[in-house]
Simulated assay, not measured.
Amino acid sequence: MGPSYTAGKGRRPKDAVDSTIRSTQAGVPIARIEFLDDVMIDACNRFSCLSYPVTPTLFLEFHGSEQSLKEQVNTTEDITQSNRGSDFQWAQDAETRNRLWKARHDAWYAALALRPGCKAYATDVCVPLSQLPQIIVETKEDLIENRLTGPIAGHVGDGNFHCLMVVDPTDPEELHRVHLFTERLARRALAMGGTCTGEHGVGLGKRALLCEEMGSMAIQVMQGLKDTLDPNNVMNPGKILQPREL
């Protein structure tokens, strides 16, 4: 039996993410869970000529036999409805599945299209699943308060989500606000027992945050391993770890 997909809407980001947590706690073996907030859905509608309701949306994928799929879908739909979710769409054939997932697949380009001529900068964090609803609520409030365009898309099944920051690279003041926002986002995640990066890596931008997250002793161990394996400092010199004194 092939996979089955759904798109379920909630009135608030917290409702959609709560559905994720409760489905996981109920033991539903969901293969993939993706979350798009209302700003991201609106951008995808415009970019891909779709007609999704402009509201926080979950995209889910299930695998298994026909009977197993029915059980997974029924349980997840019950949980989502209890969290004020609605407007479910299901698909098993490849063409309809692709249509349902188009919004998620085009998210990057859709975000860019919100502000023609601007650039996109992606940042992400990861937190324990129980903390995910709260951090998304606080992050959206932060974006609105600081007048920033940052549609949210996330692999919420593992507590990871992305802010696709769309910024005018010629506006120093806006760039500064984006920089401060990304630091607040990362420290918000650290305060909740999470990590400053989910899958975009550390590099130069989050090097100081990595030290805050891991502590000086762990960084010293990492530096020692790098010095041993890369004595000439030719592998990513100056990235993640500070260049050692020669």
Score class of each variant (00 low, 15 high):
11 R>V: 14
14 K>M: 14
15 D>Y: 13
16 A>V: 13
23 S>D: 00
26 A>Y: 04
27 G>T: 05
28 V>I: 12
38 D>P: 08
44 C>T: 02
44 C>L: 03
49 C>D: 11
59 F>V: 00
59 F>H: 11
59 F>T: 05
60 L>W: 12
64 G>S: 13
66 E>K: 14
69 L>T: 04
74 N>W: 07
76 T>D: 03
77 E>L: 06
78 D>P: 07
81 Q>V: 14
85 G>W: 05
85 G>N: 00
96 T>Q: 10
97 R>C: 09
97 R>E: 02
122 A>Y: 01
130 S>G: 07
131 Q>R: 08
132 L>P: 03
135 I>A: 05
142 D>I: 05
149 T>L: 02
152 I>Q: 04
154 G>E: 04
155 H>A: 01
164 L>I: 14
166 V>M: 09
167 V>M: 04
169 P>E: 10
169 P>M: 09
174 E>F: 12
178 V>F: 04
179 H>P: 02
181 F>M: 10
184 R>N: 08
184 R>Y: 00
184 R>G: 05
194 G>F: 14
195 T>H: 07
200 H>I: 08
201 G>I: 00
208 A>W: 05
210 L>Q: 04
212 E>A: 13
214 M>Q: 15
215 G>M: 05
216 S>A: 11
216 S>R: 02
218 A>E: 14
222 M>R: 05
224 G>W: 03
233 N>Q: 15
234 V>Q: 08
238 G>Q: 04
239 K>G: 06
240 I>P: 02
240 I>G: 08
